[in-house]
Design a protein around this nucleic acid. Structure first.
Length: 552
RNA sequence: GCGCCCGUAGCUCAAUCGGAUAGAGCAACAGCCUUCUAAGCUGUAGGUUAGUGGUUCGAUUCCACUCGGGCGUACCA
């Protein structure tokens, strides 16, 4: 809770107590409509149910205990079914303006989770090809969520689960070898489910450039696998670092084999009687009462584990590392499988309470009204690098994060690409650029503004409705960060930034900032601009987009 | 069939533990540039929150059912 909220909550709490009631927690909402004040509490309605009294009567009792003459709360009134609405003095917000300016890039950071650690694992694409637009949503969501967690005090470990074994990698090896062989023999057969992307041909050409025909007819699939893995993983990492995403840990799945954790996990299932053998495979018994319909295979009859077994071992490993919060991000196509993994983790006696799985819905790409079809088979794949080249990294991240994860996302490429007022990302960035323009102007007219002592800043002069509305919105930022972080929903930050931009643009049109005739007013308005700029920048940092100084 | 998610303005989406008159952008219509960036602002229009019932002071939100869509329902990940 922000300081303002805390103070009001404290006042209500005491008033409730004085009135002879008891309440465990005070909820304060910011009403949608300004006429209902700055903060609103439903405490009286909650108590009404408990004490079987009319809510308005309780509200009256509470309100009579609240002081409104100390310059903090200017008015407290009962409205509607029994809401208690509080009107705060303008000075509260003017003081907050100074806080924003003095805390600067740290304004909005909180310590609600300080001392706690979080692990976020996401992207985790297999090194079989470049990242494509299907990876984009979780990539951008994860980046923003990791930042949000840090803003609320978590020490965050960013992790990538790296799977360099299994079917898909074999498939890559066969594909690379086929392309390599086709250099010598045009009709060399390409594997049925091979990777048809052009990058495979490039890998083959690179091999040819170094080894010439030495690997011709070689049965050494391992060689082709490693060449393919190295090249594709470099592509993946290049995309990630280009977006400012730097994982702290690349957890290699094969390490779970090397330290026998896979084996131990399998043994644990066996010894607890949770698995059995059938048709040459090892099956995990699933609990029907927990909604599972049938048993699942842990080890295939080929002797190779399915993804489940290492995944369970991996999650146990993460639990053992002692994080306070463990987050996985998956697309909805994995919506069932994570439940199986958690079931396995629990069945072995580990507590999965700290694991939070974020499932996001699928993304549909459109060019205007026309939907963009993708298919791996025909290499009709829209790679993330191409999307970035087409619309820019900022627009891409903005669009991916702009909606709640649980909503299906319609990604309109032509809109994102549009360098016009239609594009929502520019609306917000433009507010920042516009402020930078004003500040350039300020630097010429009142070059001394930068040396203003905040304690000397005249805030009395701030009075227009647009100014006050803007200050109120700005002071919401810390709460917005906390609430977005709490529910892991970075789109709330975008919704909020949009309202900041909207109120700034309105302020701009109605309040001339630089007025050579009125230095005092200009200086205070310049500081409002500085605060807006700071909030926008802090929000952009969380989402991970840039704060442009100019947009022409 | 079963499981998860979703259904809100013409389109894409918001809506703070269940709160007050359900909000933005795009599209449409009407205005605003000798003044700090018009990538902007102002106004108009647009809704039985898919439907039916239930829970209560109050339901877009919770419950049940129906209809419609997405994703799963592999010895792929």
């Amino acid at each position: 809770m922000s300081k303002l909220k805390e103070q009001v909550a404290e006042i209500i709490y005491n008033a409730v107590k004085e009135s002879g009631y008891q309440i465990s927690e005070i909820y304060l909402d910011k009403p949608k409509d300004e006429k209902f004040g700055d903060l609103s509490s439903n405490a009286a309605m909650t108590l009404a149910r408990e004490f079987k009294l009319p809510p308005r009567k309780i509200a009256e009792e509470i309100i009579s205990k609240i002081k409104t003459d100390d310059g903090f709360i200017t008015k407290a009134e009962i409205a509607g079914a029994g809401f208690i609405n509080f009107f705060l003095s303008d000075n509260c917000y003017k003081d907050e303006l100074k806080n924003i300016l003095s805390e600067g890039k740290n304004y909005g950071r909180s310590s609600v989770h300080s001392g706690q650690s979080a692990n976020l694992e996401w992207v985790s694409a297999n090194p079989t090809g470049p990242l494509h637009t299907g990876h984009g949503r979780q990539l951008c969501l994860g980046k923003a969520i990791a930042n949000l967690l840090e803003w609320t005090g978590y020490k965050v470990t960013r992790e990538y689960y790296y799977n360099d074994a299994g079917n898909q990698m074999n498939n890559l090896a066969l594909s690379v070898r086929a392309r390599y062989m086709q250099i010598f023999q045009k009709d060399f057969p390409f594997p049925e489910d091979g990777y048809v992307g052009d990058y495979v041909k490039i890998i083959a050409e690179n091999i040819f450039a170094v080894y010439s025909d030495k690997m011709k007819d070689s049965a050494d699939l391992d060689f082709f696998r490693k060449e393919g893995e190295k090249y594709t993983f470099d592509l993946i990492k290049k995309t990630l670092t280009g977006l400012g995403i730097n994982h702290d840990i690349f957890f290699n799945e094969s390490s779970l084999y090397e330290n026998s954790e896979i084996e131990k996990t399998l043994e644990a299932f066996k010894s607890k009687g949770l698995s059995y053998e059938k048709d040459g495979a090892v099956w995990l018994k699933m609990d029907e009462e927990k909604g599972f319909q049938k048993d699942k295979v842990l080890v295939k009859s080929s002797g190779e584990p399915t993804y489940r077994l290492p995944d369970i071992a991996y999650h146990i490993d993460k639990i053992k590392r002692g994080y306070d919060l463990i987050i996985d991000i998956f697309g909805s196509d994995h919506g069932d499988t994570y439940k199986e993994v958690l079931y396995g983790v629990n069945a072995l006696g580990y507590d999965s309470d700290k694991i939070k799985v974020i499932i996001h819905q699928m993304v549909t790409f459109k060019m205007g009204t026309e939907s963009v079809k993708m298919s791996k088979r025909s290499d009709n794949v829209y790679y993330l690098e191409d999307l970035i080249n087409d619309i820019g990294a900022d627009a891409m991240q903005f669009f991916y994060v702009m909606r709640g994860a649980n909503s299906h996302l319609d990604f309109d490429i032509s809109l994102a690409k549009d360098k016009s007022e239609k594009n929502p990302v520019y609306y917000i960035q433009y507010a920042h650029a516009r402020i930078c323009g004003i500040l350039r102007n300020a630097g010429e007219v009142f070059p001394s503004y930068a040396e203003t002592d905040l304690t000397e800043l005249n805030t009395e002069i701030i009075s227009s409705p647009e100014e006050m509305k803007l200050l109120k919105i700005l002071s919401d930022f810390p709460d917005e960060v906390i609430s977005s972080a709490k529910t892991f929903e970075p789109h709330k930050i975008i919704t909020y930034l949009n309202s900041v931009a909207e109120n700034f643009h309105r302020f701009y049109h109605n309040n001339r900032v630089i007025d050579a005739e009125n230095k005092e007013l200009s200086i205070s308005r310049i500081h409002i601009c500085l605060a807006v700029k700071q909030i926008l920048k802090n929000g952009f940092d969380i989402i991970g987009i840039s704060a442009p100084e100019r947009m022409y």
